[in-house]
Deep mutational scan, measured.
Amino acid sequence: MQRVNMIMAESPGLITICLLGYLLSAECTVFLDHENANKILNRPKRYNSGKLEEFVQGNLERECMEEKCSFEEAREVFENTERTTEFWKQYVDGDQCESNPCLNGGSCKDDINSYECWCPFGFEGKNCELDVTCNIKNGRCEQFCKNSADNKVVCSCTEGYRLAENQKSCEPAVPFPCGRVSVSQTSKLTRAETVFPDVDYVNSTEAETILDNITQSTQSFNDFTRVVGGEDAKPGQFPWQVVLNGKVDAFCGGSIVNEKWIVTAAHCVETGVKITVVAGEHNIEETEHTEQKRNVIRIIPHHNYNAAINKYNHDIALLELDEPLVLNSYVTPICIADKEYTNIFLKFGSGYVSGWGRVFHKGRSALVLQYLRVPLVDRATCLRSTKFTIYNNMFCAGFHEGGRDSCQGDSGGPHVTEVEGTSFLTGIISWGEECAMKGKYGIYTKVSRYVNWIKEKTKLT
């Protein structure tokens, strides 16, 4: 034993070699072989497995989906700052455009905790909710729209109204504003409101030439003092309507412009014939205590009207009353817009006519005020429907199939267009061939041609 100890002390290297040989010859039971080890760690190889990531292109799944990435790591994937920024906006807080917040056709661009709407022409605001041009839906104005110097929408209202708090709607500024039905039992019968379409306001006024200088022999019209197929109006439903009495009662109609003036057809009036105007009328054979009678003290036909040349060209006249009318729910003026808007309103496509005229061709006159909704007829169809001249200051309205029309005794009465609950004068009943005849239409004086003249002559002093 002493000898062994001496050998170990003198030859430590020998001992180490012996131990190493023993270990190498022993069977290893701690580690699995290569094949079995792979069965336990069965993990798919990654895209760049075996390579240094710093030297390969980034992978979106590896960089940002398996674990949260930084902007720089995302930049490695896209290799483009702009594309990385677009991805980053949604990656950080989701897609803010998912709810489609942009209105009126706006395009949404996502941002971090926010979004941006790219608005089409005519709109602005956070969600493109603000109209900035009158060309689109009248700028959301209830009545009139004008573009300011910086191309912003400025709404306005006709006389007797003021802008509401929203700067879009119009509200009454006087007790009985024009064009409004205020009798409670008839307010439910107000005709369907007309909503502004998209309009090209630059070209809204037709490029028409008034044929002022045409000389033409007097034409022989049949029954051209021209509501057939209409309905009984309720008291106060058309408070701007008046009836004219002269040699015979209810020979023509008219509309209240203001307390002192009536507008009617020029062919209705004769110099030297006494005319009485009755406002607030409903049943011409009954006294309903809503009527107001006034005498006409002055007749002003349009300066281009000449019955000797043509009885229905420039067929418009103004009547001055001896005493002002007292405005109330049964006696209310009709609204008159400017030339541009009167023309736009007419193009809405349908209007209402009213009167006490004959209820059928050569038949009896109506006792109760009649009204009828009539569609506008395109000019080409209008011209083809008659052998008589249709001037540019006239328009056609009615039904091709016949059966409904204005008729004798309705002449001078109103053709009105309702705009968001307020009625505007767009025409004056003038003439036609018979009444409600198939293929024939009622012919009306186009008020847009005469609004400046009306307003100039009827100013209240």
Rank of each mutant, 00 (worst) to 15 (best):
residue 432 G to Y: 10
residue 198 D to Y: 07
residue 346 L to A: 03
residue 375 P to Y: 11
residue 200 D to F: 11
residue 384 R to M: 11
residue 108 C to R: 01
residue 109 K to G: 03
residue 165 E to L: 10
residue 355 G to P: 05
residue 413 G to P: 01
residue 51 K to T: 13
residue 176 F to P: 01
residue 233 A to E: 05
residue 178 C to L: 01
residue 330 Y to Q: 05
residue 204 S to R: 13
residue 199 V to N: 13
residue 15 I to T: 05
residue 257 V to K: 01
residue 14 L to W: 12
residue 38 N to D: 12
residue 57 Q to K: 10
residue 273 V to F: 08
residue 118 W to P: 00
residue 250 A to I: 07
residue 345 F to R: 00
residue 76 E to W: 05
residue 411 S to K: 14
residue 442 G to H: 14
residue 54 E to T: 07
residue 177 P to C: 03
residue 418 E to Y: 10
residue 3 R to L: 12
residue 232 D to V: 06
residue 91 Y to H: 15
residue 20 L to D: 02
residue 235 P to S: 06
residue 198 D to W: 13
residue 344 I to C: 04
residue 169 S to F: 06
residue 388 F to A: 04
residue 51 K to D: 10
residue 419 V to K: 04
residue 381 T to S: 05
residue 307 A to L: 07
residue 328 N to L: 01
residue 249 D to F: 05
residue 275 I to V: 11
residue 224 F to E: 06
residue 413 G to A: 13
residue 5 N to M: 12
residue 217 S to L: 05
residue 455 K to L: 07
residue 177 P to L: 01
residue 408 Q to G: 13
residue 87 F to M: 15
residue 325 L to K: 01
residue 163 L to S: 03
residue 86 E to I: 15
residue 217 S to H: 07
residue 193 E to S: 12
residue 222 N to C: 05
residue 126 K to W: 05
residue 123 F to E: 00
residue 366 A to W: 07
residue 387 K to R: 12
residue 115 Y to I: 02
residue 455 K to I: 06
residue 30 V to M: 13
residue 250 A to F: 08
residue 322 D to H: 04
residue 178 C to Q: 02
residue 156 S to R: 08
residue 404 R to Y: 15
residue 334 I to R: 00
residue 413 G to L: 06
residue 8 M to E: 08
residue 418 E to G: 04
residue 115 Y to C: 00
residue 290 T to G: 06
residue 116 E to Y: 02
residue 348 F to S: 14
residue 454 I to T: 01
residue 406 S to P: 13
residue 100 N to W: 06
residue 326 V to E: 10
residue 190 T to P: 08
residue 394 M to H: 11
residue 162 R to W: 06
residue 175 P to C: 04
residue 195 V to K: 08
residue 449 R to F: 10
residue 84 T to G: 08
residue 279 A to E: 00
residue 286 E to Y: 10
residue 337 A to L: 00
residue 249 D to G: 12
residue 124 E to D: 02
residue 9 A to W: 15
residue 111 D to I: 11
residue 17 I to G: 02
residue 273 V to Y: 07
residue 367 L to Q: 13
residue 335 C to R: 01
residue 44 P to R: 05
residue 79 E to Y: 10
residue 18 C to K: 02
residue 396 C to S: 01
residue 263 V to K: 00
residue 90 Q to P: 09
residue 46 R to Q: 13
residue 385 S to R: 11
residue 379 R to S: 11
residue 243 V to K: 10
residue 308 A to D: 13
residue 189 L to A: 12
residue 452 N to G: 13
residue 353 V to E: 02
residue 405 D to Y: 12
residue 122 G to Q: 04
residue 389 T to W: 13
residue 198 D to G: 11
residue 119 C to Y: 00
residue 444 Y to N: 02
residue 441 Y to N: 03
residue 335 C to L: 00
residue 416 V to H: 04
residue 307 A to C: 05
residue 219 Q to E: 09
residue 282 H to N: 11
residue 344 I to M: 14
residue 62 R to V: 08
residue 36 N to H: 09
residue 45 K to L: 10
residue 346 L to V: 06
residue 34 H to S: 07
residue 217 S to N: 13
residue 227 V to L: 11
residue 393 N to F: 04
residue 243 V to W: 09
residue 429 I to S: 14
residue 48 N to Q: 08
residue 441 Y to R: 03
residue 112 I to E: 15
residue 289 H to N: 14
residue 104 N to S: 03
residue 348 F to Y: 15
residue 204 S to M: 14
residue 29 T to Q: 08
residue 336 I to D: 00
residue 20 L to F: 11
